[in-house]
């Protein structure tokens, strides 16, 4: 029968996660539907809810450290989402529980927060058997972190401005088919996502075009060159809109 453990420290969480086929539990918004629909019986569920510091958002010198239990709806994360709650993500009840870090590492997908995090240069702090390491948020394999690994936090730059535009069936409760996110600020840049649950690709060389109010064509070209052929035109169109949003007076979203 599946046991439940509630570690109080990251060290305990790391030990617990090494136990058999342990499954780490953040907000559980993907874990519980998976358990219910598949009847999976992992040996142990490692609940992060009581780990010291897991719920905190710490800001220092223009950077944020987001603990593993911080939900998408946390008001402290508004600067990352252009000053508002990201209503394009899930439902209000899910946003209040789904964690940013869980989204970035989930093997269940679709990891829709990742393009926004990547535009802020986000990295994940991962605790595993070999010690603690920092990895780019876009570098998590599709099937998640390796067994036994626990992501303790995400670290990213607080953007001066950020914009995210996406192609989806509807503005809400629809998956991102194609997304372009870009941010202005130290350590910021741009990223695109292609396909529902597809990879997020960092756009190289975007920063110089992003700063320049006349840099829209250059930015669109940089985004297009990162995109696969069939969707280049769509990505280019979104990139122009993102660039415009970054330079609109008062534009933050």
């Amino acid at each position: 029968m599946t046991r439940h453990v509630f570690p109080a420290t990251w060290e305990q969480a790391g030990h617990a996660a090494l136990d058999g086929d342990a499954v780490v539990v953040g907000g559980a918004t993907s874990v519980q539907p998976w358990l219910t629909s598949t009847g999976a019986q992992p040996s142990v569920l490692v609940h992060l809810r009581d780990v010291a510091g897991a719920r905190s958002v710490d800001g220092m010198a223009g950077r944020l450290r987001i603990g593993a239990m911080v939900p998408v709806a946390d008001p402290a994360l508004r600067p990352v989402f252009g000053g508002t709650e990201p209503v394009w993500f899930a439902t209000p009840a899910v946003r209040r529980r789904a964690t940013v870090v869980g989204n970035a590492v989930s093997p269940f997908g679709p990891r829709e927060v990742v393009p926004v995090l990547a535009a802020c240069g986000a990295r994940l702090v991962v605790l595993a058997e070999g010690g603690t390491r920092s990895i780019d948020v876009t570098a998590v394999p599709p099937n998640g972190l390796e067994p036994g690994a626990v992501a303790c936090a995400a670290e990213l730059a607080v953007p001066e401005r950020i914009a995210f535009r996406r192609v989806a069936l509807r503005p809400r409760l629809s998956r991102t088919e194609i997304g372009v996110a870009a941010a202005l600020g130290d350590g910021c840049g741009a990223a695109i996502s292609v396909g529902v649950g597809g990879p997020t690709l960092v756009v190289e060389g975007a920063a110089e075009f992003l700063r320049d109010p006349a840099g829209s064509p250059g930015f669109a070209a940089a985004c297009c060159s990162a995109a696969p052929d069939p969707v280049r035109q769509l990505v280019g169109g979104l990139a122009v809109r993102v660039h415009r949003a970054l330079h609109e007076p008062g534009g933050r979203s």
Partner: peptide, 23 residues
């Protein structure tokens, strides 16, 4: 049973959540 329809919503420590999403 997957958090999409809201029919099973309860308050957990005073905040609404679909009870099917909560271990």
């Amino acid at each position: 049973a997957s958090g999409h329809c809201g029919s099973c919503t309860v308050l957990l420590d005073g905040v609404p959540v679909p009870s099917c999403l909560v271990p």
